[in-house]
Structures are given as structure tokens and as C-alpha cells.
Simulated scan of single mutants.
Amino acid sequence: MRSVNPIPGNPWPHDMVIRVQDSPWALYELLWLREAHGLQPAGDDLPPLLARTPSPASTSPDAATRARWESAWTRLWRAASAHAGREQDHEGHARLIAMKPGDPGRTELLHHIIGPTWRDEFGDEAFDDPSYTQRERSTPEERAAARPRTLADNPEHRDLEALIPAWRAGLTTIVTIPCRGEHTRRIGDNALLTTAATRADSAAYRRALASFV
């Protein structure tokens, strides 16, 4: 979404680039975990529930583990959200591809690119569950089905009048999560986190973009 020179008749600013991150897996994992395990993390700015409620996890943590999980969830959500909103590190990706397994610094670079995750702190065990497997398989199809079929249906083109002032105020990245209702949070100097439902509704999306200005 960028050109070197202005294009006559095109209302999209030729130098405006907006990245839409609709596959933040670290956030999806946290959202699944919260609902599948019935966690009740504390916080006044947490995201709403998933639009499609996952099946309950087949096993439940003991009381002490649940308390640790609930205590860590909000902190990890905020850290993972902030990372999802950062500019992509293309140079880091190129260095990672050039590295061989076992190269010094590879693990550190991989962590820098992926960002903080639940697995870093608690391991993979919670995700070895039929509920998560079912969710993981269905998510790509749901995301593909939700994508606009024409340029005119694209939310950024549909609501260009609201997007341009937000971009001029510094917005470069929009992170979407598959949660219910209208919800928008600023996650850094250049990014907004919003629900897919907010982005799909013109009036709600315009309010979200206006909140950045």
C-alpha cells in the first residue's frame, strides 16, 4: 500500500503504509487459555471474551497452579500485545534465516522476533489439549473467511477518512483479535489493538481510529 509518487485520483496517501496483524499467535494462545481453563485474571483493560467460545480444557490445573496462571496472565497479555504492535524486524528475520541450528545467539534472536509468550514461562503442556488443537485447526479458515473480498470492503479503504488522521498521528500497525464486541486499546506509540468485530463495523472502527489521534 505504498507508491513512490502520488497517484492522481487515488485518495490513499502514496506514502502511507498500514500493517494489519490478524494472526498474533501469542495473543490467541493467551485468549484460548483464559477461557478453556476458566481463568479470572485481574485488570481493568483486558480484552473481551472470544467470539467463538472454546471447549473446556480436558484437564484443570490445581489451585496453586491456577493462582500462578491468573497472576501471570495479565502481565503476559500486556507484554505480548505490546510486542505484536511493534514494527517488524526484517533485518532480524534475515539474520535468523541465515543462521544454522546451534549458532550462538540464535535462541536470543528468535525470542526477540517472537516476543514474550506463555510457553516461555510455563512451557507447552497447557496447549497439549484437544480444545486447543481444535481451535488451532479452525482459526486459519475463520480468518480467511472474514477477509474482505473486494478492495472497497477492506476496512482501511472503507474508513480511509478516519484512517488518514490516525496515520498522521503515528499509527502504522493494527492488531486484531477474535473477541466479542467493541474493544480498542493503544499498544505503543504506533499501534492499536482492536477486536475483529470493531474493525468489521464502520462506525466502531472510526471510533477506534479516532482514539489514536
Score class of each variant (00 low, 15 high):
residue 167 W to E: 06
residue 154 N to W: 13
residue 176 T to R: 02
residue 120 D to F: 14
residue 6 P to A: 13
residue 55 S to N: 10
residue 2 R to S: 03
residue 67 A to N: 02
residue 204 A to V: 07
residue 97 I to T: 13
residue 174 I to D: 00
residue 101 P to M: 10
residue 63 A to S: 05
residue 185 R to C: 00
residue 137 R to H: 14
residue 15 D to S: 06
residue 77 W to R: 07
residue 93 H to L: 15
residue 171 L to K: 11
residue 72 A to W: 07
residue 93 H to T: 14
residue 137 R to P: 00
residue 158 R to P: 08
residue 76 L to K: 08
residue 52 R to I: 13
residue 128 D to V: 06
residue 101 P to W: 12
residue 77 W to V: 03
residue 124 D to R: 12
residue 98 A to T: 01
residue 140 P to S: 10
residue 213 V to L: 00
residue 61 P to C: 12
residue 80 A to T: 12
residue 22 D to F: 11
residue 106 R to L: 15
residue 70 E to F: 05
residue 82 A to T: 11
residue 164 I to A: 08
residue 165 P to Q: 01
residue 60 S to M: 09
residue 90 H to N: 15
residue 52 R to W: 01
residue 109 L to R: 06
residue 213 V to S: 08
residue 90 H to M: 10
residue 94 A to Y: 01
residue 132 Y to H: 07
residue 179 C to S: 09
residue 29 E to Y: 10
residue 110 L to R: 14
residue 203 A to V: 15
residue 66 R to I: 12
residue 127 F to L: 14
residue 70 E to Q: 14
residue 156 E to G: 01
residue 79 A to L: 13
residue 54 P to T: 04
residue 88 Q to I: 10
residue 138 S to K: 07
residue 6 P to M: 09
residue 121 E to W: 00
residue 44 D to Q: 15
residue 142 E to N: 11
residue 78 R to N: 13
residue 172 T to E: 15
residue 18 I to D: 08
residue 169 A to I: 01
residue 96 L to M: 15
residue 167 W to N: 13
residue 90 H to T: 15
residue 145 A to W: 06
residue 168 R to F: 09
residue 81 S to T: 09
residue 139 T to H: 06
residue 153 D to S: 03
residue 15 D to W: 02
residue 94 A to G: 01
residue 59 T to Y: 02
residue 58 S to A: 11
residue 137 R to I: 07
residue 92 G to P: 13
residue 4 V to I: 10
residue 4 V to L: 05
residue 131 S to Q: 10
residue 97 I to D: 15
residue 149 R to E: 09
residue 176 T to C: 05
residue 181 G to P: 04
residue 170 G to Q: 02
residue 124 D to I: 11
residue 11 P to F: 06
residue 114 I to S: 11
residue 21 Q to V: 11
residue 193 L to R: 12
residue 74 T to Y: 05
residue 143 R to F: 05
residue 86 R to F: 01
residue 40 Q to N: 13
residue 169 A to S: 15
residue 176 T to Q: 05
residue 165 P to T: 03
residue 178 P to M: 06
residue 16 M to Q: 12
residue 175 V to N: 00
residue 11 P to G: 14
residue 101 P to L: 06
residue 163 L to V: 15
residue 184 T to F: 04
residue 54 P to H: 06
residue 11 P to S: 10
residue 17 V to C: 05
residue 19 R to H: 13
residue 50 L to T: 07
residue 32 W to C: 11
residue 188 G to T: 06
residue 114 I to N: 13
residue 170 G to W: 00
residue 13 P to K: 09
residue 82 A to D: 08
residue 34 R to W: 02
residue 33 L to W: 07
residue 190 N to M: 13
residue 22 D to W: 09
residue 137 R to M: 02
residue 42 A to W: 07
residue 165 P to A: 02
residue 58 S to V: 09
residue 82 A to E: 05
residue 106 R to F: 14
residue 179 C to W: 00
residue 42 A to Y: 08
residue 48 P to W: 01
residue 212 F to Q: 10
